[in-house]
């Protein structure tokens, strides 16, 4: 019996209607990612990387085509069902970190577990913050943390639910080279130890090279 791929994308197309006519942002993209595998989406600005990531993670609806996440067709779900899938199976890391500014580092990390009412959230959150090297900054607010530290909090948050797949949107885009490599290392290490699949959006070929597979995008088409 073959295992279900964690992500199965078929003929995915996204079109925006603009004043000047239709704008094809993504054209018929198809790929499949086995459980635990890693993959990079590489391409210049405006090539449709982030749109593809948003569609794969169920943050947006495609114009046509399908996305199966852990075998579940996202297109058939309403927004709240997709939210539940995200909570159960998906982790996120964003270029601009997207921490909730009114919550401390620890509270940010525990949000996904607390959403489910899981009482072990605090202990697990503390452990993850230790692992990303922020054991002494748990009570700090995002504005009191540097960019690299904020991204490490975001990483801890992404892994707290032991997601089956992690979507990372240019996770080092706002960081300097040294901090970036630290973040990538932590991400890869967490990925390996938890067996999480990884979809990494980047425009850096070196970062893409660390993953098992690279999808190159140009003007919305896989090349």
């Amino acid at each position: 019996m073959t295992a279900i791929p964690i992500l199965d994308v078929q003929r995915l197309t996204k079109t925006y209607r603009t004043g000047a006519g239709e704008l094809n942002v993504l054209k018929e993209i198809s790929f499949s990612l086995p459980q635990g595998a890693t993959c990079a989406i590489l391409g210049p600005s405006g090539s449709g990387k982030t749109t593809l990531l948003g569609l794969c993670a169920g943050l947006d609806r495609p114009t046509s085509g399908s996305v199966l996440l852990n075998g579940d067709p996202l297109a058939d779900m309403d927004e709240d069902e997709r939210a539940r899938v995200r909570n159960q199976h998906v982790g996120f890391v964003f270029q601009n970190f997207q921490l909730i500014p009114t919550l401390t580092a620890l509270e940010n990390v525990t949000v996904p577990m607390e959403l489910r009412g899981d009482r072990a959230a605090r202990a697990l959150g503390l452990e993850l913050l230790q692992r990303v090297g922020l054991g002494d900054r748990v009570a700090h607010y995002p504005t009191q943390l540097s960019g690299g530290e904020q991204q490490r909090v975001a990483l801890a948050r992404a892994f707290i639910n032991r997601p089956k797949i992690l979507f990372a949107d240019e996770p080092t885009g706002n960081l300097d080279a040294e901090t970036s490599s630290g973040i990538i290392d932590i991400m890869m290490e967490l990925n390996r130890s938890a067996g999480t699949a990884l979809v990494l959006v980047t425009h850096d070929p070196d970062v893409a090279g660390l993953t098992g597979r690279t999808i190159r995008l140009r003007s919305g088409e896989a090349v």
Binding site: L59, E79, D80, A83, R84, V85, R86, N87, Q88, V90, F92, Q98, L99, I100, P101, T102, V111, P112, L115, R157
Partner: peptide
Amino acid sequence: HRTGAILRCLGASARS
């Protein structure tokens, strides 16, 4: 809005 979007992204329903 951003906080709301992050919560939604992390799996919170619109109602909650």
